[in-house]
Amino acid sequence: MSTVAAACPGTCGELFQGTLDGVPCLVSCPIDRYARIRVTARPGEGLSLPGEMSKTRRALENFLERRPLAGRNLVVERLEALPEGKGYASSTADILSALACAATLAGISLPPEEASSIALSVEPTDSIAWPGLALLDHREGRIMRFLGPPPPLTVLVLDWGGTVDTEEFNSRDSRPVLSSLAALHREAFSLVLRGVEQGDPETLGRGASMSARAAARLLDKPRLDECFALCSLLEGHGVCVAHSGTLYGILLPSGAAGREGDILETAARRLSPGWEGKVHSLVPGGPRTEERKKSP
């Protein structure tokens, strides 16, 4: 019997989401809050998962069609879950963690492109399979581009509650609005890309802020203006949002991570009531293997 556990970072929405040359794509904002999955291979066949993990089941079925594990029954446990319907990339993080476990049990390395393709066979997917930041066509995978390591940033993650039905959101015909935003999206992505390539959090923050403003044309973001006001007060670099979720992120200098108490006190004085917040770090994407053991 062999057991592997893996974790994959969730996100505070996206640093960029829009269309580039007519292709919908995004750059996720991975943070140090993780989904954790454990997979145990026992004698037998098939998959054993909790009923609520149907998306992870479908992804593993796809993986096993490509990379059969004959004679082994995979038992999947969710050790730590991310909140759903908010913009934490909960489904993608679960899927990538489970795929990393299955690949380790199969004795193979699963490239981020293949892992993302498997995830895309289940649903629109976040760009967190790569060990850094990446641009991904989150619907069809026509664009998969590793951008580089994230610049040093702290993210104040804010949520006023509620959820967004991401399947309903992704089924909308937003093409007319997206078409009108095409030039803005191109400029926003160029800034995010330059920020990554130059390790410049200020430039990246400007691009994320442009993308956040554009997102409000597709899904109401009622707290966006006060988030920008708080960002200015905290001398931050910009604001990101979950384009199909409820999260807002204030992009702060990396040294802000040690001032969480002061930051939250300032937020409490300035923001409308009803929010929850926590300070996180921007981290590279990609699943991390955390446990590996074999027993007789």
Rank of each mutant, 00 (worst) to 15 (best):
A115K: 11
A115W: 05
A115P: 09
A115G: 12
A115Q: 05
S116W: 07
S116P: 08
S116V: 14
S117A: 15
S117K: 15
I118K: 11
I118A: 08
I118P: 11
I118D: 04
A119F: 07
A119P: 12
A119N: 09
L120C: 06
L120D: 13
S121R: 14
V122K: 12
E123Q: 12
P124T: 09
P124A: 07
P124S: 10
S127R: 10
S127I: 09
A129H: 07
W130P: 02
W130Q: 07
P131R: 08
P131D: 07
L133C: 09
L133E: 06
L133G: 02
L133P: 11
A134W: 08
A134E: 06
A134V: 05
L135R: 09
L135P: 01
L135Y: 04
L136M: 07
L136F: 12
D137T: 00
R139K: 15
R139L: 15
R139P: 08
R139G: 10
E140A: 14
G141A: 09
R142H: 11
I143T: 08
M144R: 15
M144P: 07
R145H: 13
L147C: 12
G148T: 01
G148R: 01
P150R: 00
P151Y: 04
P151W: 02
P152K: 08
P152C: 04
L153H: 01
L153E: 01
T154K: 01
T154C: 09
V155F: 00
L156N: 00
V157Q: 00
D159K: 01
D159W: 07
W160L: 03
W160G: 00
T163Y: 02
T163F: 04
T163H: 06
V164L: 01
D165G: 07
T166G: 06
T166Q: 03
E167Y: 13
E168A: 15
F169D: 06
F169Q: 06
N170Y: 12
N170G: 03
S171K: 14
S171A: 14
S171D: 02
S171E: 10
R172Y: 08
D173H: 10
D173M: 00
P176C: 06
P176W: 00
P176M: 06
V177Y: 05
V177P: 00
V177I: 15
S179T: 15
S180T: 13
A182L: 08
A182V: 08
A182S: 13
A183Y: 11
A183E: 15
L184N: 10
H185I: 06
R186M: 13
R186E: 14
R186S: 13
E187Y: 10
A188L: 05
A188Y: 01
A188R: 00
F189Y: 12
F189L: 15
S190N: 14
S190Q: 14
S190W: 03
S190R: 12
L191N: 01
L191W: 11
L191G: 03
V192M: 04
V192E: 03
V192F: 00
L193H: 13
L193Y: 12
R194E: 15
G195L: 02
G195N: 10
G195T: 10
V196T: 08
V196L: 03
E197S: 15
E197N: 11
E197Y: 13
Q198D: 15
G199L: 08
D200Y: 05
D200H: 03
D200R: 08
D200E: 11
P201H: 08
P201W: 06
E202S: 14
E202C: 12
T203F: 04
T203Q: 11
L204P: 03
